[in-house]
Each structure stands twice: as C-alpha cells, then as structure tokens.
C-alpha cells in the first residue's frame, strides 16, 4: 500500500502533498498541545513498536499469516491526533530508511494511512463508545479506506487496472481489512488483560457530527470508487460537466498565462514553473497561517504545574 515515486501523475502527488503538509503541521501542533511532555518519547517508542509488531506473524487460518498495520490500534491508545503524527513518522522512516514508499509520494501515503486511515478508523470506535464492535470496525475501516484511497490514486494517475484485477484487489482488501480488525481487537483485549487502563476513552466527537462525517466519507468514497471503476476518466468528465474544471483551470492559468507565452517555449518548463509558483504560494500561506495560529503559544509543551 506504500506508493513509490514514479507511479502517481504529477497532478495527483502535488495535490496530496499540498493537502497533507498543512494537515500534519496542524495535527503536530494539536498533539503537542494536548499532551504532557512525557508523551514525546512515548510517541516515538510506539512508532518503533509498530515496526517491531509487524515482525510478529499472526496465523489466520489455512496456513496463511497476516501482520498488523496498526493505524487503528495507535488511534485507540494515543488518540487520533497523536496517532496521525506517529503514523507520519513511521511512513517517513519507511520511505527514507527502507525505501518503502516514495518521498514525493509521501503526501499521498500520509493522506491515505496517517490521516484517512487513522481518523476514519477512529470514527466507529468513538461512535460505538469503545466496545468490541467499534474496535473491530475501526481496524476494518482504517485498512479499507487506506487501501481504496491508494487504489483510486493509482487509477486517477492512469495506471491501468482491468476490472478483473480491480475485483481481485477489492476482495483482498476486504480480507486484509477483516484480519486487521480481528487482530486489532485481539491485541486490544490481550493488552486489557496485561495492562488495564492503556486504552483511551473516546471523546471529542459528538455523536451527530461523527455520524454525519462517517456517512459523508462512506458516500464519497463509494461514489468515487464507482465512478473511477466504471469510467476511466470519470472524475474528469464529472468535473467538466459541472464546470468546476473550467473555472479552476481559468483561475490557475490567468496569472501565469502571459508570463508563459513571453518567456519560455519548453512545455516542461512552463508546467514546472506554474507548479513551483503554486507550491511557493501555498508554502508561504502555510507559514503565515501557522505564525498566526501559534502567536503567543511558544511554550505550549512546557510542563504543566502539578
């Protein structure tokens, strides 16, 4: 599920990098603010734990074995904001040290697993009040959403996926999702016997908001997969029909149009310059927003007086 570099179309990885970077910046600040300072080593060590736990093979019948992905387990024990940061650290380490997943595609992988996987997996847990069904569904949904997002990104990038392979991968995703759910539940239960009180009580999401979010996410992902599967360039035609694409391209092209015509002839250079300009604008925006948000919060993780 780790997408390497060179697989995604430029539009796709740039978009996801641009979405993931400020989201992780925000979540890092939030996790930093919510936690006592003893949680800094805890988060790193729990990231290392996920690596180590992936070495344990779980027999799941018929001689096959699975291993834990762990996004849901982390979100139940550390809370979703911290779990997102730990997952991001895991993905970055995998990309850097193990060449598992690309550096430019890191935004895509972070979006799939550390953002969608963690938060969508946390939803059933929060909604069902942390009971067994919630834990199982959390693991299942966490893996399913990450896997489907990765598959749809590859399809959007024009990697051909014939219907037979699509059906096969859906089946495999479902099986691995069920395994992940069962493993998460089993590990949580084992943990509850060994060290009671590690599980966090779900809080912070009101029931209605959570339900609405969950329904919207399920609808969107379902519709997205349906459109992407029946219609190779379905998303584009949908965008064209609704006129969003026209407006968006006009919006992005206008400021740079004259510049392109006057200056350069190479199509690659024009595209890259437009892209770089976009990235610079977003980078500056992120910096400004983060300055604005953190003004006067420099000592956010100083120890709390007891």
């Amino acid at each position: 599920m780790h997408i390497p570099d060179g697989f995604l179309r430029t539009r796709v990885w740039v978009t996801l990098d641009v979405v993931a970077a400020p989201a992780i910046g925000y979540l890092a600040r939030r996790a930093q603010r919510e936690f006592d300072h003893h949680k800094v080593p805890l988060m790193g060590v729990m990231g290392a734990f996920i690596f180590a736990a992936q070495m344990i093979n779980f027999p799941v019948g018929n001689g096959t074995s699975g291993h834990l992905v762990g996004a849901a387990l982390l979100s139940f024990t550390l809370g979703p904001a911290a779990a997102s940061i730990v997952m991001t650290a895991i993905l970055a380490t995998q990309a850097l040290v193990f060449q598992d997943g690309g550096l430019l595609a890191l935004g895509a992988n972070v979006f799939n697993m550390a953002i969608a996987g963690v938060w969508l997996g946390y939803l059933p847990f929060a909604l069902l009040g942390g009971n067994r069904a919630g834990i199982f569904l959390g693991g299942l949904i966490s893996l399913l959403s990450s896997a489907f997002l990765a598959l749809s990104e590859l399809m959007l990038s024009g990697v051909p996926i014939p219907p037979a392979i699509f059906a096969l991968s859906c089946g495999l995703f479902l099986i691995s999702g069920i395994i992940e759910g069962a493993l998460t539940l089993a590990v949580v239960q084992a943990l509850d016997r060994i060290q009671p009180g590690v599980m966090r009580q779900p809080k912070g999401i009101t029931r209605n908001l959570g339900l609405a979010l969950g329904a919207a996410a399920a609808l969107l992902s379902g519709a997205g997969i349906f459109v992407a599967s029946t219609h190779p360039d379905g998303i584009q035609s949908l965008a064209l029909q609704t006129g969003i694409a026209g407006q968006a391209t006009a919006l992005f092209r206008t400021p740079l149009a004259d510049y392109q015509a006057a200056f350069v002839r190479s199509p690659w250079l024009t595209k890259s310059l437009a892209g770089i300009a976009g990235i610079v604008i977003i980078y500056v925006l992120c910096l400004v927003i983060s300055r604005f948000l953190t003004a006067g919060r420099r000592q956010a993780i100083a120890p709390r007086p007891n």
Binding site: H37, P41, M46, P59, L183, V187, R193, I194, V198
Partner: peptide
Amino acid sequence: ALQLRQATGAAGVLFARSYGRAQAIHRAM
C-alpha cells in the same frame, strides 16, 4: 505453529513493554 491467541498475546506484551520503556526513558530524561 504459534497460535493466534499466543501471537496476539505476544503483541500485547510487546505493547506493554514498549509503553513501560517509554516511561522509563522519560524518567531518565
């Protein structure tokens, strides 16, 4: 031949040990 129950137990123990180790690291810091 590690059974599922034992494997999940091992993962639980590993979790608890990692958690304990993190607390020890913090105390040392």
